[in-house]
Design a protein around this nucleic acid. Structure first.
Length: 497
RNA sequence: GCCCCUAUCGUCUAGUGGCCCAGGACGCCACCCUUUCAAGGUGGAAACACGGGUUCGAUUCCCGUUGGGGGCACCA
């Protein structure tokens, strides 16, 4: 074996059992980066050898997620390639032939044990405190007898003769040599009674056919890697280099999965993360270039990514950091691009009463006001909805009186709103700067702290206590609606007094 | 239970025998800026799991303990 001697060819090999979650997709990102960095080939292969677990539409959604993240592939189920098929259920004869060869060399044998016997065996093992595993009953059966029974149509599986007195050693790129004693393994199934191969056989055959140079996959495969090594050897295949990347842990410390807070990549898109941010975040979750760089463009990552520097420890998925990073991407994005993303969101999330298409000029105007206030695209609508309505429902009195200044001075608040309405109505030039100047003067005249007065106006005009900057917002909303909202607020407050 | 992997701030990490009384980032706290909220700026608290070795010298090498994760299907 001469690791690394072959051109780099790596694959992302999901099974169609649901949406691709982030733990899974990080493996794809690293494999992709590895391939692109080395000028190698990245391919996608569907591992659908378990008919019972198949979830319709999975493949499409997996490919969608990849596309969304900007990951492309050179060969795959949708585009084919020189080593097609890239869907395992379409290579059944190949797996059977491989099993056949293993049978011939006695590396594998037919097993006729029924599910019932297996269950009883396990029960007995458990009772006796023995490690679970196939006891090898059928291994002793003469091959001729087994072949005859199989020819007669008797249901059976094919097992690989794994258990013996020896040991299996292999090299993992990240951890060095790993050695395990074969007695810790049982004779595992490589061909199921339905004629489908198990993962163990299928991926070995495919990796050979597709000339995979490095098996990049999750850490959860490490314990069964010796099985795969043995199959590669028994079939006379060249062993790829193994690269077992660590799993990602959920907030509860368990392996990230549906049960442990894993979300589909598509959900992140839904929440308003941008692909570049998720990509960046995932790429550096468990990998680092140096002691300071965290923000990378995709191109930069391709340039500097070194798979040998991937951490061997499982990492906890830190949603807060992801959010921060997404905010950074939003802030640094070209404004026109952000405007387009905002428009798309608003189009979707604004109340149906707002006419479509959403006013693009308006979105363009408000973008600079909120770009620093949004970490997720999904937050934008709630922040700017008041721009899109003629009037804003006047918030409850507590919203106005919440601050210490106005709590016991409703009359003052009413007066402040009234004065503000008059001021705004009379501003000569309708610009944020002019409005602010006039409003500050009004505050001074009323002997009220500017901030206190502005708070009242903010609630009246935006309907919120937390909102984009007041005067810029007023400018965009327009004089007439602003005056109307201020008057309505004064009126409503007076009524509660 | 058995097997495998693993161990630096709460989290992600830099660190490959002396440059480290350990650096960066997120988060947290304080202050500044300020019309709210953000953003931004400044400062701060915060880690080498433990015990043995090896060495003139260990965060770095070895062994053990403990902790964490993963795996033990006719699932991948």
């Amino acid at each position: 074996m001469s690791p690394g001697a072959r051109p780099v060819r790596v694959r992302y090999a999901p099974s169609p059992t649901g949406d691709p979650h982030v733990g899974n997709i990080r493996t794809a990102i690293w494999a992709w980066l590895f391939a692109r960095h080395t000028g190698g080939t990245f391919l996608v292969r569907l591992e659908d050898t378990d008919q019972t677990r198949e979830v319709p539409g999975s493949l499409e959604r997996i490919l969608d997620a990849l596309h969304w993240l900007g990951i492309d592939w050179d060969e795959g189920p949708d585009i084919g390639g020189p080593h097609a098929p890239y869907i395992q259920s379409q290579r059944l004869p190949g797996y059977r032939a491989a099993a056949e060869r293993l049978l011939e060399t006695r590396a594998a044998y037919r097993c006729f044990c029924t599910a019932e016997r297996l269950a009883e065996m396990r029960k007995a093992q458990q009772a006796a405190g023995e490690p679970p595993g196939y006891d090898g009953l059928c291994r002793a059966r003469p091959a001729e007898e087994a072949a005859a029974r199989a020819a007669a149509g008797e249901a059976h599986v094919v097992r690989f003769a794994m258990r013996d007195e020896g040991r299996t050693a292999f090299e993992d790129l990240l951890r060095g040599e790993i050695t395990v004693e074969n007695r810790h393994f049982d004779d595992f199934v490589i061909l199921k009674s339905d004629g489908f191969p198990t993962y163990h056989l299928a991926h070995v055959v495919d990796d050979e056919v597709m000339a995979i140079s490095h098996i990049t996959r999750g850490d959860e495969w490490l314990p069964s890697a010796p099985r795969h090594v043995r199959i590669f050897d028994a079939l006379g295949y060249e062993r790829p280099v193994f690269v077992h990347t660590p799993v990602i842990l959920g907030p509860d410390g368990g392996k990230l999965s549906k049960r442990h807070g894993a979300k589909s990549v598509l959900e992140y898109a839904e929440d308003g993360y941008v692909p570049a941010a998720l990509f960046n975040f995932l790429a550096i979750l468990g990998w680092a270039l140096d002691d300071k760089t965290e923000l990378f463009t995709r191109e930069r990552l391709v340039e500097v990514f070194d798979i040998a520097k991937v951490s061997v420890n499982p990492a906890t998925f830190d949603t807060q950091k992801l959010e921060w990073m997404n905010g950074v991407y939003l802030r640094e994005m070209p404004e026109a691009e952000l405007t387009a993303l905002f428009a798309e969101r608003l189009e979707r999330d604004l109340p149906p009463a707002v006419p479509r298409p959403v006013d693009r000029e308006l979105v363009r105007a408000l973008t600079p006001l909120v770009r620093e206030r949004v970490k997720l695209l999904g937050e934008v609508t709630a922040l700017v909805d008041f721009f899109f309505a003629d009037d804003v429902p006047t918030p409850a009195a507590e919203e106005f009186l919440g601050s210490k200044r106005w709590r016991d001075d409703v009359a003052g608040a009413v007066a402040g709103l009234g004065a503000s309405a008059a001021t705004v109505e009379g501003v000569a030039t309708w610009s944020a700067a002019a409005i602010e100047a006039a409003m500050r003067a009004t505050a001074e005249r009323l002997a009220v702290r500017a901030g206190d007065l502005f708070t009242l106006c903010r609630v009246a005009v935006t309907g919120k206590r937390v909102a984009p900057p007041l005067f810029e917002s007023m400018e965009i909303v327009g004089r007439e609606p602003v005056v109307r909202r201020l008057r309505a607020a004064a009126e409503a407050l007076r009524a509660t007094a």
